[in-house]
């Protein structure tokens, strides 16, 4: 019989004491044991990036990490992004730019982007594309996400100027809002 482990996890700064069999992934534990369904899943094989969460500040695929290996580490999910009712600048930028369409890849996208901006709020377009290259999105064509991450980076660096398409709607008629 498999043993059941008594795990003490820290999720979004909150302690969680759980009895978990060793073969359960962090994804299963977050969604099915902690009730944190904000973290989604698209393949469970590490191929799509949908289940990305932060572990000690680094983006990891929750489907490929055993919950038992997360003891003593800082787990952050999309539910922990906002402070109280205040949205994180990334969440605001994603919401305002339409960077979330179906919204299913969004939590993973936000967490990967957070790790990037925590390290470098001035990340440039190519750095953003590289950092997010393991997170697939089928709706947006990625550009609204890139713009949102750039904008959130500006907000974090103290410059809240919104992208052109939000300043003056007619600008989009003149052509590209991103190069």
């Amino acid at each position: 019989m498999p043993t059941v482990l008594n795990l003490e996890l820290s999720v979004n700064g909150e302690p969680r004491q759980l009895l978990v069999p060793p073969h359960h992934s962090l994804l299963e534990v977050l969604r099915e044991r902690c009730g944190l369904t904000g973290t989604k899943h698209g393949c469970e094989l590490g191929e799509c990036g949908t289940c990305t969460v932060l572990l000690d500040g680094e983006p990891v695929l929750a489907c490929l990490v055993l919950a038992a290996e997360c003891v003593g580490r800082r787990i952050e999910t999309v539910e922990g992004l906002s402070v109280g009712a205040e949205l994180h600048p990334l969440q605001r930028a994603f919401a305002d730019l339409g960077a979330a369409q179906c919204g299913y890849c969004t939590p993973g996208m936000l967490m990967t982007a957070k790790a990037l901006l925590d390290e470098n709020p001035r990340a440039e377009e190519m750095e953003i594309r590289e950092a997010l290259a393991g997170n697939l999105c089928r709706c947006t064509g990625y550009w609204k996400i890139i713009e949102a991450v750039q904008w959130a980076g500006r907000i974090l660096a103290g410059d809240p100027t919104p992208p052109a398409i939000l300043r003056e709607p007619s600008e989009v008629k003149g052509g590209c809002s991103h190069g």
């Binding site: 904000g38 999309v78 339409g98 299913y104 969004t106």
Partner: peptide, 22 residues
């Protein structure tokens, strides 16, 4: 005619929107 924030946006960026498996 304006680029208003979608009504489902906040739910989707905060992980609150429930999909069927949620």
């Amino acid at each position: 005619g304006t680029s208003f924030r979608r009504v489902d946006a906040v739910g989707k960026v905060s992980g609150r929107t429930q999909f069927a498996d949620d």
